[in-house]
Design a protein around this nucleic acid. Sequence first.
DNA 1: GTCTATAATTAGATAGAC
DNA 2: GTCTATCTAATTATAGAC
Lengths: 211, 211
Amino acid sequence: MKKSPLDSSAMTEHGSPSGRRGRWRSGEQSRQRILDTARSLFRQHGYGGTTVRAVAAAAGVDPAMVFYFFGTKQGLFAAVADMSADFPPAVDEVFAGGLDGVGERIIRTLVELVDKSDRAPLATITRFAPTHDQSEALLREFIDREISGRLRALLDTPDAAMRVAMVNVQLLGITVARYVLRIEPIASASADELVTRFGALVQHCLTGELP
Amino acid sequence: MKKSPLDSSAMTEHGSPSGRRGRWRSGEQSRQRILDTARSLFRQHGYGGTTVRAVAAAAGVDPAMVFYFFGTKQGLFAAVADMSADFPPAVDEVFAGGLDGVGERIIRTLVELVDKSDRAPLATITRFAPTHDQSEALLREFIDREISGRLRALLDTPDAAMRVAMVNVQLLGITVARYVLRIEPIASASADELVTRFGALVQHCLTGELP
DNA sequence: GTCTATAATTAGATAGAC
DNA sequence: GTCTATCTAATTATAGAC
């Protein structure tokens, strides 16, 4: 198994988020607060613009704790941006259904998955990609492998490449508008409305008549 | 006149870029090299991840020169990201033509304007917006005032807001895909192809039948 | 797990010589 | 306009006490 460049070796996998019982072990609590604070600060000021000390201060812990949990600043970022376990499972059934109705399914999957958690890795790396090489590589790989690759497999027209590219533009645009920059009214539209509107638009890009 | 938060007070306005005659005054040459180098480094590592010293080193000048020309690191960034004089003139005629054919005109204007120069401010602030508060504010203001505002004025349907939003998603998606992340085949498509494809799509968002 | 102390380095910025 | 020298503050990271 190939390790993603952003996998945090300092990050231990615990039980499922909902499967937690009883009280936090106290260390876990700090770790989580650091992680949440770091995500927020990285978002506002980028990787280079965020200091470990600022994270620690905002999380109410000692800077040394951050290094204790995450080893290095990069380790902290990796833990924040890691997208190793999020998408693949849900993505499969999106494309398994064939060309008919993929538009709606792809938008529904995107929106419902990323809406669910404010720490969705896709939103995080989309945010950092423009100014962080590792994130950019990760996002590009995701688009190529999970989106473009699978869509191409469904299409058999001479302009397939451009049709797929147009879908990518939709997905990128939605992600940036809703989750990164929070442009209204996209940011607060209901998932259903987005699915209806952009589902049809994506479907049009794939199977409609294009100039 | 209200000053944009990114206006560089250290930036002197010189003659038009094409109107230069004779040799550079030597200072101008350094200033330009610093500016170009800074743009490149800011793009790769973001605002916080770029040091003045690194810019100076890469530009082959002394760090003190950077401060001499731009005052502060923020002043340097402002000079790089300033978008004060680019869009307004061209944008006017895009919307003056009325609803008919706006789709093509808006895409053509966007693409031709940003293609022309690798230092197009719109591409720059779109890149920094996700991790730089000032850039985000600037981009949001641009979208609101120059795009959404003018498009709304042309529409008179109950779903006007969502139609405009969908256009914004197109524009954001194209800008990010072509100029920020350089996703293929959008990045190397011809301007004409983009105008044809996305012009029609934008027009469809505005005047077509939507679900 | 949590903190103190501190090492080693680097950042932004200024003063002033030339 | 360009550079040397330097100040001050902050940064990542470690060692080790509790």
